[in-house]
Design a protein around this nucleic acid. Structure first.
Lengths: 200, 200, 200, 200
DNA sequence: TATGAATGAGCTTTCATTCAT
DNA sequence: TATGAATGAAAGCTCATTCAT
């Protein structure tokens, strides 16, 4: 997954002609947020993020006026990598369904290593609206392309919505890494298998 | 409903020989909580529950030391109904898989009508530990019975864990009620269909 | 000025059948607020009031949900004393104008000893709306009675509004006790003298 | 307007032999401040002023170390106009009292059209000290000249202090622009009328 | 000299939990 | 045993002021 492409950098964190110290702070905040998002979820207090980053609260607000801005920035690279992986897999994999399967696995890998992200994606708090918007806008079309290709190839049932599928995958990923030995990947595979035939 | 088993009676509402006024308070609190859980989810503030019940906060804490105790008590009846439905469905349905499917649908119906419950079930906050424990202890064995029967009948793949399946179902139910038209039932059906064959 | 009458106690601080400790806290908060209002104005931070009173912030909010509630409570006694003094002075003084004059002096005495109150009365911050409302509702009618009596007696010009007069008096009182030797009483006397004849 | 006196030139805009770009910045800031003072009062945030002026915050602070310095500079012209109007009115008006009255009206006009200025003039925050100093140093002597002339002419009572009078006028102007129909001009007229005779 | 990023104390408000009554 | 008043930490956010660039 190439992380450094800038095909779609709506708010690139590295291209702005900022002062170097400001850029450094932006990065410090992103790193701190990434860390804390893993351990405490994306609901983590802004004060804690600022502390972890070693910057003042005002600095955090200057760089990321809303919580959604911060979350989007933290995960932008990975999201864009997923976006790009869709068409690529369609070319490289043996069949559309294989491509869809591989792409979903990529997405699962992403979500499950970012603990709390999946949960945040499903929060209905208004402060997360921009987060939904970004993820759905970017990823659903890609997923839809794969789903349609597989459907047209007759590999999966024809009545599956990409949004619904992604939502399901996100749900399965949002709560799996506990002491219980529940494995998101296995569950998602069940879902993917379920796509292949009409309900029994 | 006969309280056949007493494996986990965190706060039995009928077996303890309490004073009648204490029992009355317990019931008032349960009624209030049930009402508020519907409208505001299981995260509703304890103060609101006490107010609705018309009791003091200390009384609420005396009867239900943790939020999990309260949730468990509120949903005990329904959980036990699920427990009993398992064997019953195995007898009444046409096949073990049909019974499993019907039972899961029962569980989905339960979870999706209790706003916030599924999410609480997957919370990793320590105050919810007792909630996990109760649900899993009561329901997983029942689910396992159905899964095993279906596996032995050759209707589903043999390597499925009941805990994992229930966890997946719970996940799919915890985040479906948005303006997005995502339907937990449809997703769960996908999962159930996926059980039928080995992964492709 | 009798401070303990309870003729008009819309929210008496002493008659509520509260627990004694709660009543004690109410009084501690009122005392603290009165003190801090003098030194820091009624804009003083709620945290400071709680600290000065030796109570938690939640306690302060329990007793006085809005800042206006606190201010009104602090000054209620004196306002009500002013309300009662109006008719009394009309009876006891030699003429309506003398009564008006005496009443205004009473009001000046009140305002000038409560530094910051006059200023707050003229703030246009929404949080002070209830304060305006209370003061104007209670005092303007009383003042109007005195003004009308004096006007009917031909002692003052007939075109004076009580609200305007009180507002002027309030203004003159709001900023007089600096190191500058400006005396609100003298200025108010000028205003009262100015009432007696038409403008020259 | 000739800058005849240099008693208190906290930040002269024209006498210092500054570099031309610095002078340009000074002017940009003054223009921005004048604009924002009208719309948002003199309490407007310094950041907003800097933004409006198109300069950095450091530049603003360099030119006007305190808020008072900025306010003084913005209103210098009008204050000096008042200063010059005093003797002029004494010559042109029919009597010293008429001159005093006209001059006070000039001052009222000035204050009431500058939202928040009158209030700032009466603030006891240290950052406004320079503001008091400037206004009083410049205007009180002028007012005193008019008051003395009127007193010597026997038109007003002899015991009136110019400082006190101005303070009263300032107070009456500081809080009149509400939805309440309180008119500073009318109240000031009452004060001026009150000057004419001894207290009754 | 000019910039504006950074600071961080400050604000109001909420709420799970405790404990004096 | 029941009450609900009291607690106080925590939250998000703002803004006057400083200082590295």
């Amino acid at each position: 997954m190439s992380e450094r492409r800038t095909h779609h950098p709506p708010q690139s964190t590295e291209t702005s002609p900022k002062r170097s110290d400001a850029r450094r702070n932006t990065q410090k905040i992103l790193d701190a947020a990434a860390t804390l998002f893993v351990t405490s979820g994306v609901d983590v207090s802004v004060r804690d993020v600022a502390l972890e980053a070693g910057v003042g609260m005002g600095t955090l607000y200057r760089h990321f006026p809303t919580r959604a801005d911060l979350i989007v920035a933290v995960y932008r690279h990975q999201v864009e990598a997923c976006v790009e992986a869709g068409p690529a897999l369609l070319s490289s994999e043996a069949s559309p369904y294989a491509a869809l399967r591989a792409w979903i696995h990529l997405f699962v890998e992403f979500l499950t290593t970012k603990h709390g992200l999946a949960a945040a994606l499903q929060s209905d708090k208004p402060s997360f609206d921009a987060l939904h918007a970004y993820f759905l806008d970017r990823l659903v079309p890609v997923c839809a392309g794969l789903v349609e290709a597989a459907a047209e190839a007759g590999e999966i049932r024809p009545d599956v919505e990409a949004l619904e599928l992604m939502w399901g995958v996100g749900s399965l990923c949002s709560n799996s890494n506990k002491e219980l030995q529940v494995n998101a990947r296995r569950l998602v595979d069940l879902l993917l298998t379920g796509l292949r035939r009409v309900a029994a």
